[in-house]
């Protein structure tokens, strides 16, 4: 291993700068609006300059950087590597499926899966049924709470309109009501299930985390700050 990660990165940047310089010379140079005399330095000037600075500094790091001070960080264990890979893989899946499946489904599955696997030291195939059961239960639980919330909001809307009580058609108000009802349901569910199963149940833990996090993010980002989180397959 003659190549430390630092010099490896420098090498990558050398290659990147070469590509970047080639790319910046290929940029089409159009005239600035109203620039008949060609006084504008043009679209290429800064990219080309930046490319050369990048090339110079990465070359310097690659050649001059003292080699003796190798990182003496402990090596990452293979199981930790596995954990990081799972997290990354799921994040990429999350981004790819976000628009198709929608925020609610994606987030529940993402959080549940990661919380489930991050806590397990050695993954075995026989855990699959347990995982899948939990996943289904978690998804249904989230969907149920979400649907109930939508139902309440919708009902309030139409009721508010038919009775002319403008308070109910106020989105902040209905979000607030929904929040309290759902928080109550969520807490009751947590409480009851803890009662039923006295032992610290590891299977239920990720489910509640997944549902709770999904609903809270939905409430804060979607309801209060009006971000239109993708609906995906959940059309209602």
């Amino acid at each position: 291993m003659g190549l430390s990660i630092r010099r490896l990165i420098a090498l990558v940047f050398i290659a990147f700068s070469v590509f970047y310089i080639i790319f910046s010379f290929s940029i089409e140079s159009r005239r600035m609006i109203g620039d008949e005399k060609g006084w504008d330095p043009g679209s290429r000037a800064i990219p080309v300059g930046t490319g050369f600075i990048m090339l110079a500094s990465s070359l310097y790091i690659f050649t001059k950087e003292e080699r003796k001070r190798e990182e003496n960080k402990e090596k990452i264990k293979p199981e930790t590597k596995r954990v990081i890979l799972i997290n990354l893989l799921l994040s990429f899946l999350y981004v790819f499926l976000f628009r198709r499946l929608g925020f609610i489904l994606c987030t529940t599955v993402f959080i549940y899966t990661l919380v489930y696997f991050n806590r397990i030291k050695n993954v075995q195939i026989k855990l699959l049924p347990e995982y899948l059961t939990g996943l289904t239960a978690g998804t249904i639980f989230t969907l149920l709470i979400y649907s109930l919330g939508r139902f309440i909001t919708r009902y309030l809307y139409s009721w508010g309109r038919s009775t002319d009580i403008s308070l109910f058609t106020n989105s902040n108000f209905s979000a607030g009501i929904t929040f309290f009802i759902l928080a109550a349901i969520f807490l009751i569910a947590v409480f009851l299930l803890k009662r039923w199963r006295k032992n610290k149940n590891h299977m239920l833990f990720p489910i509640f985390i997944a549902t709770g996090v999904t609903e809270i993010i939905y409430l804060v980002f979607g309801q209060i700050f009006m971000v239109s989180l993708a609906k995906g397959v959940i059309f209602w």
Binding site: Y94, F98, F110, F221, S228
Partner: peptide
């Protein structure tokens, strides 16, 4: 615990990036 916190941070980070242009899906 990290096992729980990191997935939450990841989701928050991604939704946060999403939110900045939250109307343009």
């Amino acid at each position: 615990p990290i096992a729980v916190l990191v997935p939450v941070i990841l989701v928050l980070s991604m939704i946060g990036s999403y939110a900045i242009q939250g109307r343009a899906i």
